[in-house]
Computed example of a mutant assay.
Amino acid sequence: MRGRASVWLLFGLWSAAVPAAAQRMPADRAARLAEAERALAEERYDEAQATLDVLAAGLEVEEPVLAARLELELRRAGLFGATGAAATVPAAVESAAAALERRTDVGHRGCLLLADEATAAGRTEAAAGWLRRALERRPDDDRARLRLALLELGRGRTDEAARLALELLERHGGCPGILQLAGQALLAEGRAEAALDPLQRLARVAPELAEGRALLATALLVERRFDEAVVQYERAVALEPTPARRAALGLALTLAGRAGEAIPLLERLTAEQPEHVGAWNNLGVAYAVAGRIEEARAALRRALELDPGDAQARANLADLDAPTPNR
């Protein structure tokens, strides 16, 4: 009998902002660009635009000027350092990005800004490409590496996300966000045993982080260390009692041979959250383990009524109805 366990992830993503790279520019133009950069940093956008307009008036516009223009438009639109798709991307942002993208000499900072624009536009493959180019130009940029790892994880490229996360872990082994990312990526790749080390370290450095406890519990559950999984789910629920964590705790209790404790917990959850598919599925599992077969069928059918495409509940119901030598 199979059950469902959810995982959670919460990251504080570092800003992608870095100072503009100096290129070979006439001294007077470099000084004007520095003025625009200071205005940008201090959010004096009208002053920055006025200076950049002057710099962009010539026939030869240097790459750092185009990068600064894109940063200005991204900041104005609230898309600087974008971590997800925006409802709309202003035409001014698209125009500035197109001008920079046409260059053959886009630098590290320009790559990061183009990744922001692509992310905001929902073009995740393009965003990943620009982040890779940024890393080619500056292999030591772990902020870009973190952004790329998160992006690849979100795109389902778990092998690449895990590789990047492990690289980050070598240099930032005490950072809770990196430990959590590594555990999440390894779990998503199906490497629960490998995920245990960073997640156990996360529990030590950030014991009050509910997401970390839940991820550790999930890894333990996959490794069939059910009693330990129960302990970690209980701690996660005590910190933040979300319906998904309560449902996962019920499953862990069942698999640990404690269906009698799981059933009332899951019955309360389904009463409070009658639309929660995972709770109904896990209640069906608990009923089945307790020998309450008809109630198990009813719970699993309810899960499928709520979500006919739920493969877990369908598989559990099929397992329940499969003929056995003792039935």
Rank of each mutant, 00 (worst) to 15 (best):
A236W: 07
R292A: 03
T270C: 11
G129C: 04
G122A: 12
R245L: 14
Q273K: 09
D321S: 13
D105G: 08
G81I: 01
L13C: 04
A30H: 14
V222A: 14
E94I: 00
D159E: 15
R201P: 09
A36L: 04
R157W: 13
L179D: 00
R147N: 05
A296W: 02
L317Q: 06
A16V: 09
G107R: 04
D319C: 02
E211L: 07
V18E: 13
A22W: 06
L186D: 11
A127C: 09
L181T: 10
R301Y: 00
A126W: 00
A182I: 11
Q312M: 13
G12L: 11
A126G: 01
E170P: 00
R76L: 14
A262M: 07
E152H: 10
A41W: 01
Y287K: 01
N281M: 10
E272H: 05
A206Q: 11
L169A: 02
E47Q: 09
A217V: 05
L202Y: 01
R76M: 03
Y287S: 04
A165P: 02
G78L: 08
L10Q: 12
A128D: 12
A286K: 06
R204D: 12
D140F: 02
A248N: 15
T254K: 00
E152N: 06
A290T: 06
A244S: 14
Q180P: 05
L209Y: 05
L300I: 02
S15M: 13
A27Q: 04
